[in-house]
């Protein structure tokens, strides 16, 4: 057993809507732990609750019930200012649409999390250069986001997410707006970071190919965790396994939908 888990979620629920009549469970009784150095993917259909889960973990949204602790800190009891500081120190984000600041250069974008913590310029420089080197974007340091390609932008975003050595890297469909070549290159980079630097990564995706880079996949459906899939063999085999699981869910969902439809139809006729 390793030390403190990176994420420990216990009986987490998120309810939308205040009146009991139209309450809707976006997350229902979710429990889940992630150990340090894991690379986990969260998969599920649209509206299954995967983005809500990510938002709650990333402290952007607060749960209705249950507790979450990240790197040993219970974040459900923090105030908004403390949450901001926590995000700044412990979390790194990669978003689908990059979210770079187009009024800062690549270098300045990456340095932003460090400079927000008032780090000395010399210290900052070495850290930013290191992470730029690792992600292969040293040459575009002085360019503005509008002048570089989508792949380079996403690498910049990744560098910004990693530069302050967060406890956890969170990705929200990080390959969502990249073409295949750039997506593969980003995923390879993430895998390398995970394996070589033991960075814990949690990534939300609906794309089986991206998910196949993970070490573990958690499937979520209607706000519940329904299945975990561990990678045992090669990535190709894992990819097939994921597709099978997704296929099963597709079939199950289709057959589940038809009896309900028929029942309600019958009810209405009565």
């Amino acid at each position: 057993m390793r030390s403190t888990p990176v994420i420990a979620i216990k009986q987490l629920s998120k309810i939308y809507g205040s009146s009991p009549a139209n309450q809707f469970y976006a997350l229902k009784d979710v429990s889940f732990t992630m150990q340090e150095g894991e690379f986990i993917g969260i998969m599920g259909a649209s509206g299954s609750g995967k983005t809500t889960l990510l938002n709650v973990i990333s402290t952007l949204d607060n749960p209705t019930e249950g507790t979450i602790s990240i790197a040993g800190t219970d974040i459900t009891r923090m105030k908004s200012g403390e949450l901001s500081d926590f995000r700044a120190k412990q979390l790194g984000f990669i978003f689908q649409d990059f979210n770079l600041l187009d009024n800062l250069t690549v270098y300045e974008n990456i340095a932003l999390p460090l400079s927000l913590q008032n780090m000395a310029v010399s210290q900052m420089k070495s850290k930013v250069n290191e992470v730029m080197e690792k992600l292969g974007i040293s040459l575009i340091a002085d360019k503005y986001p509008a002048m570089i390609s989508g792949g380079q932008r996403q690498r910049t975003a990744a560098a910004r997410a990693l530069v302050h050595k967060p406890a956890l890297l969170l990705g929200d469909e990080p390959t969502g707006s990249l073409d295949l070549k750039n997506a593969v290159s980003l995923l390879e980079t993430m895998k390398r970071l995970n394996e070589e630097d033991r960075i814990s990564i949690l990534m939300v995706t609906h794309d089986a190919f991206s998910a196949s880079y993970c070490g573990k996949i958690v499937f979520i459906q209607d706000g519940r965790l329904v299945q975990e899939l561990h990678r045992t063999g090669s990535r190709e085999v894992f990819y097939k396994q994921i597709l099978d699981v997704l296929g099963d869910y597709g079939k199950a969902a289709a057959s589940a939908a038809s009896p309900i439809f028929e029942a309600s139809y019958a009810q209405e006729r009565r």
């Binding site: 990333s58 908004s80 901001s84 926590f86 700044a88 984000f93 600041l101 927000l116």
Partner: peptide, 16 residues
Amino acid sequence: ILRYEMLSKIGVRREK
């Protein structure tokens, strides 16, 4: 709007 949203996501306090 997007810029401020992003800044708050990466942990800039509202007061800042």
